[in-house]
Design a binder for these strands. Sequence first.
DNA 1: CGTCTATTTGAATGTACTCAAAAGCGGTGG
DNA 2: CCACCGCTTTTGAGTACATTCAAATAGACG
Lengths: 195, 195
Amino acid sequence: MFQPIRENILSKVVLSAADLETFTHNLEALTLNKGALFTRQDYKSDRLAFVNKGIIIGSMINNNGDRKVIQIATENNWTADLYAFFSGKPAMFSLEAHEDCELLILTKEQFNFLCNTIPMLERFFRLLAEEAYVYSQQRILNIFNKKAEQRYLELIKERPAIFERVKQHYIASYLGIEPQSLSRIRKNISTKNIS
Amino acid sequence: MFQPIRENILSKVVLSAADLETFTHNLEALTLNKGALFTRQDYKSDRLAFVNKGIIIGSMINNNGDRKVIQIATENNWTADLYAFFSGKPAMFSLEAHEDCELLILTKEQFNFLCNTIPMLERFFRLLAEEAYVYSQQRILNIFNKKAEQRYLELIKERPAIFERVKQHYIASYLGIEPQSLSRIRKNISTKNIS
DNA sequence: CGTCTATTTGAATGTACTCAAAAGCGGTGG
DNA sequence: CCACCGCTTTTGAGTACATTCAAATAGACG
């Protein structure tokens, strides 16, 4: 059960067996049935999750009442509304189990405890945040510099797995476009390939 | 000279006088004339900067040959191409002094040394990365959920200072639109206000 | 004044959106 | 088995927002 998360940690920092033990000891397993929420938009959440199994989709309802997908977390991804987690304020988005999920959870309290007692874990989370920031920056660059079609093609290359497990309109939303537009883009690509 | 950066650190973590001393001792002052580059796209950079004075604009040339503004750092902001800084690979974008600038610099080596010797500084950089990530996420949500006009109005509210110091076409690019479009948006807003 | 750059304006185009409806797909119950 | 339901995807037509190309105007600076 803890093997994937151990590997995830050890891929970035070195931890003693004792520290690893302390770490896993603080984790809580959580099973979510498909459709269940891990965080709910506008409600507080002080939990951070590692996805052992399943898919978690983060989405928000915007001011027009439309749902927009923000993140798609699969196995070995960390997920949370970090804004809510760090600030203690209501969550910007909901996190929903898109399949039956097995998560490993850290509360903010445990997170802080671990950062205080195991410096290498604090380092791990620093590295994790840095990576997430860089990834997020790159996503902004993608949005500004590329058309939807290109972003779609690149997403297929980068994360082929999600296309088998996530409905097209969620993908469209994650790409920042409407489902109809993605449908047309796909049609357009397939006719290109024929000619 | 070190007062702003000290305050910046102490706003997030508690540091002993000795540690603060070690920290500032590792900083290097760097003066950049207007137009000078701090990092150059496609070249390696292992430096992180705190802006003591001036404005640093981060921008990249995309595949179409157009320049796109990615970040605008003013006094008391940290800036770097973090992708290059952390990965050691060539920078995704250039960082240019948009006014005469005074920076305080940490090399990657010094950064690592400080993280290794002063746990509270590592914590500071963890918090900094976390904040930057959340801010970046919010920017993505803004782009997907709002029209250019609304993003422009919100940017004026959030960062009024940059409108006095940065030319309009840089602002346009930072908003992800063309300078002509921003001009029309402004015109549109002003006619609204008259009627 | 002249030059260079930034901003504004105009006209045509393109990308994605909205509204609306049809077709496809999967599951349930008669 | 198939008829029906709900949901997803596709398709069509018209529209909105921003882009592109082009030119005019405005500002800054020697």
